[in-house]
Design a protein around this nucleic acid. Structure first.
Lengths: 176, 176
DNA sequence: GTATGACCGTTCATTGTGGACGGTCTTGAC
DNA sequence: GTCAAGACCGTCCACAATGAACGGTCATAC
């Protein structure tokens, strides 16, 4: 009984539950729906699809328009996915460049630091607007409550980061 | 004028501002101080140190006790770090297994899902306690405000995730 | 008809992780 | 005093993941 070898492969199997899709389509779907908290790259997607095909968890169809090759979930693929998701999420390895940057902030000129933080603030604000729009749009079309929940997480995180940036800026201002 | 090739190398240069350290010590320091939002691996640290030495950004000292080899920041290393941090944080590539898991939750039996979420809740609660303790301990010893800020971020994030898990669980309960 | 740009897979250099291995020094139980 | 356990320390390797570059196909607009 094969199991999905890693989280990336598993996510592909998950998305293939919605019907046959090509590597390109899968990449687009994952990026659009999970982009905020689950990044993948095209090259990785294709490599995993190739392997999944070898393992028989997925079946490559005839190449359609423009080299697009649709993959279909097999029954053992379905089983492998069930195995994987039943084991629960693995531990996260987090890398947030923004946090690394701030934690080394004492080595940077306060003026420059302030202007960079302001820029980051803008970025987070844009993110909040983006998530808010997505939320509104998806609340209408009633959909998967799980997907709604993940959007809520993204929104909450963006808001948190925004508030945190404000706090940091404020504290820096009063520091002198 | 060389610049730190990547964020990992840059973080090492940053930490070496506090004095000469071996790869082991650097790994420990980064893990302890930034573990929540900046993961590194021992193998990667040593590879980067080797390269930094080749680039002359760092100088390997005489091997001390137990193969420990201390590295010292050179003046060009200092300059390379300044260059790097002056450019601001790069874009984050986020991968949160918990979020991937929940977003695929519809494929999992609700009972099993609930028990896994409960487990994750415990994990987050422990994290909150951990950060709270660290915060208290570091607020006494007056220290770098930047480091305090990063701890605050970790704490806020853990709390957010905890609340979010509660929301998800609640929503699942009422779904039937 | 042809230029532009969306689509689609492949390749490769580089970054990053985790486990295994081998070795060194310290500490404490006996 | 010895010796076992465990902390310390670097190295090696298989595997995972990213991003940029390349080459090619098709549709559309002019």
């Amino acid at each position: 009984m094969t199991t999905a070898p890693n989280a990336t492969a598993a996510s592909l199997l998950g998305f293939l539950h919605d019907g046959p899709q090509s590597g390109w389509e899968l990449t687009a779907a994952v990026t659009e729906q999970l982009g905020g908290f689950w990044s993948i790259s095209r090259s990785q997607v294709h490599r995993e699809l190739g392997r999944l095909a070898e393992l028989g968890l997925v079946e490559a169809g005839e190449s359609g328009r423009r080299d697009s090759r649709p993959y279909t979930l097999t029954s053992s693929g379905r089983q492998a996915f069930a195995d994987w998701i039943g084991r629960g999420p693995e531990e996260a390895t987090v890398r947030l460049p923004l946090l690394l940057f701030v934690s080394l902030g004492r080595h940077l000129d306060p003026e420059v630091l302030a202007s960079i933080l302001a820029e980051q603030r803008k970025h987070q604000a844009a993110l909040v607007r983006e998530y808010t729009a997505a939320r509104r749009q998806l609340a209408d079309a009633q959909l998967d409550q799980f997907r709604l929940a993940t959007i809520d997480y993204g929104l909450a995180t963006a808001r948190l980061t925004l508030r945190w940036l404000d706090d940091v800026q404020k504290q820096l201002g009063t520091a002198d």
